[in-house]
Design a protein around this nucleic acid. Structure first.
Lengths: 209, 209
DNA sequence: TGTACATCAGTGAACGCGCGTTCACTGATGTAC
DNA sequence: TGTACATCAGTGAACGCGCGTTCACTGATGTAC
């Protein structure tokens, strides 16, 4: 095979993206601290300083990885939303869609703890700020809550408060499942998730009255 | 003054504790990663290797710092409990005491983000495992829930589920307040805390029926 | 169509840094007789 | 009460490591004429 090895061209062609991908891989395994510039370069097969053509700083690479992590989190939420089948009852559907966003959030956290940590480690300011053009996790949650409003299940001026409570609950559950309450079985985990989503629901119903 | 400076004795006398305290201080400022053996030794005024008389490892120092962090968290919860004044109504009091534990938890997280991070970074297994002889955060929460049971407000076999939901909610709120939703005013923060505690209450009331 | 040359994207070697940890040591302490 | 000596708790110097970053450089690319 050695004769047919295509020699790597001098110019990589897409080094910036390749480095970010390597960074994502590192983050998946070891969280934010594992994003190491030299190691990313090593994996891409490039000298460490080549990275400086594309990032002024290590922190810029980390930011780029965090952005991808956020996008993947949003994707997990929309994936779960896509599984929702209309029931014919608009109110039931609205609740289901809210649950789906939460479920997607927690599933991502459990499946990708490293990326999850990166997303919330390097968040400067709040996630409401855009990760445009695709709506980020916050936007997706707000959309789901607007769905409740449209179905007459939530007062329009309760959306912000509802969002922050729902987010914090789901975020907390995620960290609990990753850390102090690592569950042995996936089934037990799903039970905890659904129980927590129940609680969010009853909380929101209550605050409506 | 220089003549009256008492020369530091060759033997420190309490180096282990001094190093842990230095580690706590480092953790307060920079979280788990800031616990650096050489720096701790530097602050105590001792050579780096002296630490190895008291810890086999850096990780052993980190563990000791985490233990202190856990104790301080528990303290914050009991402090808040101590503020509860009996109202004459056992049911109201039981709710108030549960709220107090949650409030103490979140207050600690907001006041000491670095220590809070250490506590949950290095948690091996779950926090239910003892930090004896004083009851840890988990024990304090369980106690408060047993209070609800005693007041006839919670089914005895719901305690575990209630504990994990309550914990995850309060934990999530803490992280949210530290990160994505850093609040400008203390008042706004307290409002969010109380709103979340409300939600935990309605959630538990619901699951009782 | 060809050639000069600016620009871009890499290389290789080296830097200084702070870290955890180990080595051989020395000063202080406490116990046995 | 004094002295020998084991033990304990420190010191000072050094190690190897991997890191982020900088330097002067070279190979490839694209544009002007």
């Amino acid at each position: 095979v050695s004769t047919t090895v295509r020699p790597r061209p001098y110019h990589h062609g897409d080094l910036r993206n390749a480095l970010i991908s390597a960074g994502v891989e590192l983050a998946r395994q070891g969280g934010p601290a594992a994003i190491v510039l030299r190691e990313a370069a090593r994996r891409v097969g490039v000298s460490p300083n080549a990275a400086y053509r594309h990032f002024t700083d290590l922190s810029e690479l980390v930011d780029a990885v965090a952005e991808r992590a956020f996008a993947t989190l949003a994707e997990s939420m929309t994936d779960e939303l896509a599984k929702c089948r209309p029931s014919g009852d608009a109110q039931i559907d609205a609740w289901q869609r809210l649950r789906a966003t939460g479920r997607g959030y927690v599933h991502f956290a459990v499946a990708e703890p490293g990326l999850f940590a990166v997303a919330f480690d390097s968040t400067e300011g709040d996630p409401r700020a855009g990760h445009e053009p695709v709506p980020g996790p916050w936007g997706i949650l707000i959309d789901a809550l607007q769905g409740l409003v449209a179905a007459g299940l939530l007062a329009p001026d309760s959306v912000d408060a509802a969002a922050s409570t729902a987010w914090s609950t789901v975020h907390g559950l995620s960290l609990l499942l990753l850390g102090p309450m690592r569950q042995p079985s996936a089934a037990a985990r799903e039970r905890m998730i659904e129980a927590t989503l129940d609680m969010i629901g009853t909380g929101l119903r209550q605050s409506r009255g």
